[in-house]
Design a protein around this nucleic acid. Sequence first.
RNA 1: GGAGGGGUGGCCGAGCGGUCAAUGGCAGCAGACUGUAAAUCUGCCGACUUCACGUCUACGAAGGUUCGAAUCCUUCCCCCUCCA
Length: 416
Amino acid sequence: MTTFRSDLIQTLTARGFMHQCTDLEGLDAKAAKETVTGYIGFDATADSLHVGSLLPIMMLRWMQKTGHRPIALMGGGTTKIGDPSGKEESRQLLDDATINSNIASIQSIFDKFLTFGTGAKDAVIVNNADWLDGLQYIPFLRDIGRHFTINRMLTMESVKVRLEREQPLTFLEFNYMILQGYDFVELFKRHKCTLQLGGSDQWGNIVQGVDLGRRIAEAELFGFTSPLITTASGAKMGKTAAGAVWLKAERLAPYGYYQFWRNTEDADVGRFLKLFTDLPLDEIAKLEALAGAEINDAKKVLALEATTLLHGRAAAEEAAETARRTFEQGGIGDDLPTVEVPANEFGAGMAIWALLARAGLAASNSEARRLIKGGGAKMNDQKIDDEGLLVTAATAVDGVIKLSAGKKRIALVRIV
RNA sequence: GGAGGGGUGGCCGAGCGGUCAAUGGCAGCAGACUGUAAAUCUGCCGACUUCACGUCUACGAAGGUUCGAAUCCUUCCCCCUCCA
């Protein structure tokens, strides 16, 4: 393996963050002798990010840990327009208030991974609405638009793919790479930012920004992309039975987050440890070497470390303990998802399917019934055979009824 | 503006007057096997009803023809291709 002079590039490449770089040697040399400011853009369409954003966040984290300055760019301006790349349905347009509250909410996630402040190496959050909102069309076209040729833009992968598949590409989308390129130059001017990182799908946009910087600001800018992370089975990362894996505890409790990592496929463990934890590489190498059922120990480490980064050590350990008690001892952990149901609602008995739905283990009563028919439902570890089973408050053990849907989805009903 | 093609369940994609809640694939859920893994096999997979081949809602939208329409007709909306 090639050795790099800078900690930054050495770390990013060794841990598997590297996919493409506009000038790897140049960037390495620069990072070895001075503090580099680099940024990644994030969308502000929701009040939380999900694991898909974790990889870029980790890149910013490593930037800071290796002595450089990360910028998280919130797409406040671009979100306002609504990125149409989601194919058909045009995204709902958000107003300023929503966008700003989303940004504030997302910042609390960044706080877990980065140190913010006003110092030379402190991370900052910037909103591109600051400069995009005030843009005037004609001056923008004259100053910026003239540096982009349609010829070149048509060769961009993202554009080519759309054209080849005969899928619509709106003028608005077509302009995205220009706006993103402009963002880069603005950040260079305002914050001396000379590096943009992003997912491999951002390559084209990033390169445009690098070129634009050279043309209008005589700046030497760098682009660096990370590979698209899929699971070993080829699926996109980040989906579970419960839906998206959110990074906000309000949307996905630490226990759920822990379980997401705990259920990683064997073949992914080593890669994920490098990407999503801070563990030293030699330690990861040892964990990765575990074979057979022992690989589960590595998964526990992965889950614990990843959860610690986001939710803190205490919450992570609590989640780990709940998982241990629940799965290894068949008991009940404190951290399991719990639904409170008033005792009087049980009356003479509540239908078991209604209870399953209430506990969030089934999306509807019908789904709960199907689950029972399929033999996947359990109450207090007893398989439920009778669909018409009525549950009374007396079923509870210590005021709690344990419900399971399959082996992994477990919820508690606490009678109050 | 002209000519042609198309809009079907989370996605892709059949169906082209009845037996269509709609073939198939993917995704998802559950069961078996396991290691809270993968692969494989099996079942489920619109919603609602204390579940019966019952009710409701669905095949871009609105009307119409028919005993009966996703399937035929009319109008409208949207997308694609070619021409101007």
